[in-house]
């Protein structure tokens, strides 16, 4: 990636984040009534509401509020929660690692599973294992992640008492949420991995590698995997949005103290600064991960690295 490409990319990333901030801000303000009214219980006297309004700054005009919000955000100030006086920035940043660890583990495991299953399925297309893998992909794709999460809790927490159902305490807490996300993420990745293995195996260089005396497994594991993993990486980038949705669901179900749960809770309490803060940080994570995926792609493919394609 040349310097110029990098600058353009960064510019795009900033634009996307800015767009998310803007849309979120106006949707929240326009789709709902007066936040001061929402924060207070119904029937609160008008003077108290006006007081709240002045307190949270919604007495000013919308453009002024928007510009203030942007200006503060640039300086790293995401405002103060409507409820209580916690700093939004600090709360969101405290939740971020919990979401990242969940999503990161899910990506790692799904990619690994997709590569292994895809490779084994492509080893003998149409064979028993291939059919099993395709069957798994079809079933997993038709499974609603939230249902799977509840089923896992039902079986492994309530019945077998193997893993905790809620909260983040030890590594055991990760098992069920990560499993849920992996099952949601892996079918499309697996099918793509299988397909790209099949295509890679048709390449002349695979035959040439076998002619050089490399055993099939090695041709497969080294030459196949490196080429076949590229479409997977692209696809992971495309799946980030889906992963984000999955994270929200999983965090809600497992009471996971991450960004998704924070946004959901704040939505319920109409805590606008907190919702905006959560969405902003999630959007930043989203574009950064997309960028990382592109970088990884570049690292893996020397042709892209040299700017050939």
């Amino acid at each position: 990636m040349t310097g110029r490409v990098l600058v353009t990319r960064l510019g795009h990333m900033v634009l996307v984040v800015l767009a998310v901030m803007t849309i979120a801000f106006f949707v929240l303000r326009l789709a709902t009534g007066d936040p001061a009214r929402l924060v207070n219980p119904p029937g609160t006297p008008e003077n108290i509401i006006a007081q709240t309004r002045a307190q949270i700054g919604t007495d000013r005009s919308l453009p002024v509020q928007y510009l203030t919000y942007l200006g503060d955000a640039v300086r790293g100030d995401l405002g103060t929660s409507f409820r209580g006086a916690q700093s939004v920035g600090r709360t969101v940043m405290a939740a971020l690692p919990n979401t990242l660890s969940l999503a990161g583990l899910a990506i790692l495991f799904s990619a690994a599973i997709a590569l292994v299953l895809g490779a084994l399925a492509a080893w003998r297309p149409g064979g028993l294992f291939d059919r099993l893998v395709l069957g798994y992909a079809a079933l997993a794709q038709a499974t609603a992640p939230f249902w799977l999460a509840v089923m896992l809790i039902l079986v492994f927490s309530l019945r077998l008492r193997m893993f905790p159902a809620i909260d983040m305490s030890s590594w055991r807490s990760f098992v069920l949420p990560v499993t849920t996300l992996v099952v949601a993420l892996s079918p499309v990745l697996t099918r793509t991995a299988r397909q790209s293995f099949l295509e890679t195996l048709n390449e002349p260089y695979i035959k040439a590698a076998r002619a050089r005396g490399l055993p099939n497994w090695r041709v497969f594991a080294v030459h196949g995997v490196k080429s076949a993993s590229m479409p997977i990486i692209t696809l992971i980038g495309l799946q980030l949005g889906f992963l984000l949705a999955g994270a929200v669901v999983v965090e809600a179900i497992f009471n996971w103290p991450g960004i998704g749960k924070l946004i959901l809770d704040s939505l319920a309490s109409r805590d606008f600064p907190m919702i905006q803060g959560g969405i902003l940080v999630a959007a930043v994570v989203f574009v950064v991960m997309n960028f990382v995926v592109d970088l990884l792609y570049t690292l893996l493919d020397p042709r892209v690295r040299a700017g050939q394609t």
Binding site: V27, G241, L244, A245, I279, A283
Partner: peptide
């Protein structure tokens, strides 16, 4: 390249 799901949930 847009995290649409976030906005959907917010909306």
């Amino acid at each position: 390249a847009f995290p649409f799901i976030l906005l959907a949930i917010a909306i």
